[in-house]
Measured scan of single mutants.
Amino acid sequence: MGTYKLILNGKTLKGETTTEAVDAATAEKVFKQYANDNGVDGEWTYDDATKTFTVTE
């Protein structure tokens, strides 16, 4: 398990959240659902060194 971070750079929603997941693929699924639930759809990037996903609208 590891802690993964999501940085939201949406047009109307900005912020950060974290999740505990077994791997990056699992964290990505959780974060994409979170972003979708909050109406954020954009370009995704992932930094393996910091376990950080970023979505920018």
Rank of each mutant, 00 (worst) to 15 (best):
G42F: 03
T19W: 10
E20D: 14
T17H: 13
E20M: 14
E57S: 05
E28K: 09
G42Q: 02
E57I: 06
K11W: 12
G2F: 12
I7L: 08
T12V: 11
T18K: 11
T18S: 15
N9H: 07
N38Q: 10
T3A: 09
A35C: 05
E28D: 05
K29W: 10
N36R: 12
T3P: 06
Y34A: 03
A35F: 03
L13I: 15
T3L: 13
K29H: 15
Y46K: 01
E20C: 04
M1E: 09
T19G: 03
K11A: 13
T19C: 05
T18L: 13
V40N: 03
T17Q: 15
T52L: 05
E57N: 04
Y4M: 01
Y34H: 05
D23T: 06
A49H: 10
G42M: 03
L8V: 13
K5A: 05
A21G: 04
F53E: 00
V22P: 12
G10H: 10
L13P: 03
A25M: 12
D23M: 03
E20H: 10
A25R: 13
A27C: 02
G10P: 03
E57R: 02
G2P: 06
T3D: 06
D23N: 12
Q33N: 15
A21P: 01
E16Y: 08
K11G: 10
Y4W: 08
E28Y: 13
A24W: 12
T12M: 12
T12A: 10
L6R: 00
V30F: 13
F53Y: 06
A25Q: 13
T12P: 04
K11Y: 09
T3I: 10
D48L: 07
F31Y: 02
L6Y: 01
T54E: 06
N36Y: 09
I7H: 06
T45R: 14
G39Y: 07
D47P: 00
W44D: 00
A27M: 01
T26G: 10
T54W: 06
A35M: 06
Y4S: 00
Y34W: 08
K14M: 15
T12L: 15
Y34L: 07
E28M: 15
L8Y: 13
V55G: 01
A24K: 10
M1P: 15
T18W: 07
G42S: 02
T26E: 07
T54Y: 09
A49Q: 11
D37I: 09
K14G: 08
A21S: 08
T3R: 09
A25N: 10
A27Q: 00
E57T: 04
L6S: 00
A35K: 01
E16F: 09
T18P: 02
F53P: 00
D48Y: 07
L8K: 01
L8I: 11
E43C: 05
G10T: 09
D37Y: 10
V55S: 03
V30R: 08
K32H: 10
K32D: 02
Q33L: 07
E20G: 05
T19Q: 07
T26M: 08
T45P: 00
E16D: 06
K14W: 12
Y34S: 02
A24V: 14
D47M: 06
K11Q: 12
K11D: 14
T52I: 06
K51D: 03
D37L: 09
G42R: 01
W44M: 04
T17S: 09
W44T: 01
K32F: 08
A25G: 11
K51S: 10
N38P: 01
K29A: 14
I7V: 07
K51C: 06
E16G: 04
F53T: 01
V40M: 08
A24S: 12
E57Q: 07
T18R: 11
G2S: 12
T19E: 04
V40Y: 05
T54N: 05
K51Y: 14
G39P: 02
V55I: 10
F53Q: 00
T17W: 14
V22A: 12
T26P: 02
W44N: 00
I7W: 05
Y46I: 02
A35L: 14
K14S: 15
Q33V: 13
A49I: 13
K29P: 03
T52C: 06
T45N: 10
G42W: 04
Q33S: 15
K5D: 02
W44P: 01
N36S: 11
G39A: 09
T52P: 00
D23F: 03
A35D: 01
T26I: 06
Y34E: 02
E20T: 11
N36Q: 13
T3V: 11
G42D: 02
N9W: 07
L8P: 01
G42A: 03
G42C: 02
A24R: 10
K32I: 09
K32L: 12
A35H: 01
Y46L: 02
E28T: 04
N38D: 03
G39F: 15
D41P: 04
G15L: 15
N38H: 15
F31M: 03
G42E: 01
A24H: 10
N9Y: 11
F53K: 00
Q33R: 09
T12Y: 15
F53R: 00
G15K: 15
D37T: 08
E28I: 11
G15H: 14
L13M: 14
E43P: 07
G2W: 11
Y4Q: 00
A24D: 05
T17C: 05
V22C: 05
V22M: 09
M1L: 08
Y46T: 01
T18D: 08
N36W: 10
L13H: 12
K29M: 14
T52Y: 03
Q33H: 08
K11L: 14
K5F: 05
Y34C: 03
K51V: 03
T3H: 11
D23L: 04
T12N: 09
V22S: 12
T52Q: 05
E57L: 05
D47Y: 04
T50I: 07
I7C: 04
G15W: 15
D37M: 11
Q33E: 09
W44K: 00
A21R: 02
A49V: 13
A24L: 15
V40Q: 04
A24P: 13
I7Q: 05
W44F: 04
V30Q: 08
D47R: 04
G39D: 11
K29F: 14
N38I: 06
